[in-house]
Lab assay of single mutants.
Amino acid sequence: EDPKKEILLAMLMVDKEKKGYVMASDLRSKLTSLGEKLTHKEVDDLFREADIEPNGKVKYDEFIHKITL
């Protein structure tokens, strides 16, 4: 499956209130437990690539855009 789609799906599952962003810690939890599970190192690399703080907010569109360039 398309990794971009899988990450967006994980974000939507976490963002039940439809705020347009999720906490990095919640996204990490989903990405390491769903679908093609990522390792913590892979998530760290994704966050670093997208300039996301480990305890920060992750906005869908910015995150998807940064990791798919």
Rank of each mutant, 00 (worst) to 15 (best):
V58Y: 15
D44Y: 03
V43S: 02
I67Q: 09
F47W: 05
T68I: 09
A24V: 02
D45H: 07
I64E: 07
L69P: 15
L9K: 13
E1G: 11
R48Q: 14
Y60A: 05
D51G: 15
K37C: 12
S25H: 10
D2W: 03
I52R: 03
E17F: 04
H65S: 13
H40M: 08
A10M: 03
L27M: 05
D15Y: 07
E62N: 00
E6V: 02
I67N: 13
K59C: 01
L12A: 15
L12P: 12
R48S: 08
T32Y: 03
M23P: 11
I52A: 04
D45M: 06
G56M: 09
G20V: 00
K4T: 11
K5C: 00
K19E: 13
T39R: 01
G35Y: 07
P3K: 15
R48N: 08
R48I: 06
D44M: 05
F47E: 03
I52H: 02
E42L: 02
K16C: 09
M23R: 13
L12H: 13
L38Y: 06
E36V: 14
M23C: 14
V22Q: 03
Y60N: 05
R48V: 07
F63E: 06
L34N: 11
D2H: 13
D44P: 01
T68S: 15
E42K: 06
F63N: 02
K19Q: 13
L27R: 01
E53D: 14
I67K: 12
K19W: 01
K16I: 02
M13S: 15
K19T: 15
K4M: 13
K66C: 02
K41E: 13
Y60T: 07
I7Y: 07
I52Q: 05
T39L: 01
F47I: 15
K57Y: 12
L46E: 02
K57A: 11
R28G: 01
E17K: 09
A24N: 07
A10T: 06
R28M: 03
M13E: 15
K16F: 00
E17I: 08
E62D: 09
L8Q: 09
K5M: 11
D51V: 04
E62T: 07
H40Y: 12
D2Q: 06
I7L: 15
K41I: 01
P3A: 01
I52C: 04
T32R: 08
G56I: 02
L9H: 08
V43C: 01
I64C: 13
L38R: 04
F47M: 15
S33P: 03
D51I: 02
S25D: 11
E6N: 12
E6T: 08
E1D: 03
K16D: 03
H65L: 00
E49N: 01
L12S: 14
K19N: 13
L12D: 14
I64F: 06
D51H: 09
S33T: 10
E53P: 14
E53I: 06
S29K: 13
E49R: 03
D15R: 04
D2S: 09
K19I: 05
V43Y: 00
L46Y: 05
D44V: 03
D44I: 00
Y21R: 08
H40P: 13
P54M: 05
T68N: 14
D2T: 14
Y60P: 04
M23F: 07
K57R: 12
D61G: 05
L12K: 15
L27S: 01
T32H: 02
P54D: 10
N55C: 06
K18Y: 04
I52E: 03
R48C: 04
Y21D: 09
E17W: 07
E49A: 09
V43L: 08
V43T: 03
K41D: 13
T68V: 09
S25W: 00
K18V: 03
E42S: 04
R28D: 01
E6W: 00
V58P: 01
S25Y: 00
L27D: 05
V43A: 02
L38Q: 03
K16G: 03
R48K: 07
E6A: 13
E42R: 01
E17C: 06
D44H: 00
Y21S: 07
V43K: 04
L12G: 13
I67G: 08
K16T: 06
D15S: 06
R48F: 02
K66P: 07
E6D: 12
P3R: 15
P54A: 08
D26H: 07
D15G: 08
L9N: 14
E49H: 03
M23H: 14
K37P: 14
D26F: 00
T32V: 12
I64R: 06
H40L: 08
L38F: 15
A24K: 03
P54I: 03
P54H: 10
K4L: 13
I67R: 08
G35A: 07
L8C: 10
E49Y: 06
T39G: 12
A24F: 07
D2N: 08
S33N: 09
K57Q: 09
E6R: 09
D51Q: 12
H65P: 05
K19G: 09
G35P: 09
D15W: 13
K59D: 13
G56Y: 02
D26C: 01
S29P: 02
K4A: 13
F47V: 05
I7A: 15
H65Y: 01
M13Y: 04
E36L: 13
S33D: 11
D2A: 06
N55D: 14
T39A: 04
K41Q: 11
L8I: 05
K59F: 09
A10R: 13
Y60E: 05
M11R: 12
G56P: 00
L34C: 11
L69T: 13
T32C: 06
I64S: 05
D26P: 00
